[in-house]
Design a protein around this nucleic acid. Structure first.
Lengths: 304, 304
DNA sequence: TCAATGTGCCGAAATTTATTTTCTTCATCG
DNA sequence: CGATGAAGAAAATAAATTTCGGCACATTGA
């Protein structure tokens, strides 16, 4: 019984605070000055905090142990040790990007750095995900008569190709295009019932914005996968925002791709679930794939 | 002093066991039967273990608390609480794939599922990464007169396009191709000094294997990014293996892409570091990119 | 083959350490 | 001026670790 209670408590706690770092950073939640001091102290050295005892943490922050206990409770944790466990989880992926941009030189460091940043990008994307917008986008795509997916540059090309790759097998009529001139013509000729999906990491691709403006004038629905507040976001009907910390993007622009790719993945899944019969078709496709694979064929021949 | 000691101890412990789950799974490290029992009990319900007290864990495993303490020490942790912290970290990304393949239906669940699996794929890839092979591949690519990157199907196409996208700006002469006929012709015509890179998730793409065999006969160096032990791996000079748990691949083949993408990312970085002057050129390129970006251009126009 | 000895694992109890509760004081705000 | 709530001191409780003794198993020598 005690065991079950503990387990339930943990599960509940896990649900309550999926990201402790965010809670710690959120000033509004911390009313008293000592709690702010405590939060600042913990954030200043999370590594220390994850491993220190309650007395050590209290001493470093200049407060008493009971204050720390109360603080943990207020943050939604069951106890101090629960707090530590959650902090360790959050810090593992959530706080690594605070590391200084070191000049990585050994292969092991390069690998570690890239994997960490990719995981961070996914983590951050998930944290800031607007599910409501994604659901609306999925609904639009599922009902669309025809879908155009516009991207530009290596990264967004990859994204829209991926969307095409994922959606065509769900029974969607979709064409991906990465050519500005073509995009403009397709926009000008698009018929009612068409939905246009556009991807741009920065949201400042002029040509794409122009297409979207034209489409708005023409009453064609548009979905943008981009940064919030960007020109492309302004021009779109539904905006799926992915905002990653600037520092990450400037020095090594690549990790954002993982976030975009996963977002497309989620979107495609939502489209699949939007229509049960389509979803069934998807599953049948996967089965077929399995069978072919067992015959020795490369899975990739099927594109998935 | 106590604080510093604690911090140092933690840092050291963190280095010693970056992945506790692996240590727990590794039977060879666990000599005594009770320790095996304990490890099994912990692995059976990691969630419980991360939150329970030492007595609860001991009770569940049917051992005494001191045994648990000793067990933690043996695994390289400073103490039981250190063990818990590390377990929480590992479990966060490392063990989620043990979850039953649930029928995810709500958008939140879909998003959680996809992000988790992508992170897991990255985690597993990083764990099994053969840095030595990657370094050899990078050295080959850096010195190559010409590089061909062969892929097949949606996923591997993406991978080889990505490689091209990353390497051409490092000053590499590279062409990506996804067409079997073309690949065969290129293989037959390749001159000495050429290096061929091939990607296949399963390693069972017959045409690609045939190309590699032909290339071996002709003395052209080949690099395969694929599953270990596969026909493609057998046919290649340098093999970069990415072996992800079967269960993951079979049901939703997509998460492996994140691992492949990150591997290409790492490889490209290693190529950049292989030659300092090239690396400098890379950095200059990034600067240019930044400047253009500030002018309002989409970063993606530059392909990164 | 059979003791005798050694080695090391394991748990009970004691000790130490850590955490939480209770209670009191103090400050702040209405 | 009383009410409210935050914060710490101290006590109580809970948890973790060390110590120590017993036990099982292996090794050695007769």
């Amino acid at each position: 019984m005690g065991e079950d209670a503990a387990k339930d408590g943990n599960a509940a706690a896990g649900m309550a605070a999926p990201d402790l770092i965010a809670a710690l950073t959120d000033e509004s939640a911390l009313v008293s000055p000592l709690e702010r001091k405590l939060a600042a102290s913990i954030l200043a050295d999370v590594n220390f905090a994850t491993n220190a005892s309650i007395t050590e943490i209290a001493a470093r922050a200049g407060v008493s142990p009971p204050t720390v206990t109360r603080f943990c409770r207020r943050l939604g944790c069951a106890s101090f040790s629960d707090f530590k466990v959650q902090l360790a989880r959050s810090a593992y992926v959530g706080l690594r990007y605070l590391r200084p941009e070191s000049v990585t030189s050994t292969p092991a460091e390069v690998a570690e750095d890239i994997v960490t940043k990719a995981q961070n990008a996914l983590f951050e994307m998930h944290r800031g995900l607007d599910l409501e917008a994604l659901s609306r986008a999925a609904a639009l795509l599922a009902k669309a008569q025809m879908i155009y997916a516009f991207g530009a540059g290596g990264n967004s090309s990859m994204i829209v190709n991926e969307l095409q790759n994922r959606l065509f097998r769900l029974g969607c009529r979709i064409a991906a295009s990465n050519d500005h001139g073509m995009n403009l013509m397709l926009s000008a000729a698009a018929e009612p019932g068409t939905v246009v999906f556009g991807s741009s990491f920065s949201g400042r691709n002029h040509e794409l914005v122009r297409c979207f403006q034209l489409l708005r004038e023409r009453g064609i629905k548009t979905i943008a996968l981009t940064q919030s507040g960007s020109p492309l976001a302004e021009a779109a009907d539904v905006v799926i925002t992915v905002d990653l910390p600037e520092g990450q993007n400037i020095f090594r622009a690549t990790s954002t791709r993982y976030a975009f790719l996963a977002t497309v993945d989620i979107l495609a899944n939502l489209v699949a679930y939007a229509d049960r019969s389509r979803s069934t078709r998807l599953l049948r496709g996967i089965k077929e794939q399995l069978i072919k694979h067992r015959d020795g064929d490369d899975r990739q021949l099927l594109g998935d």
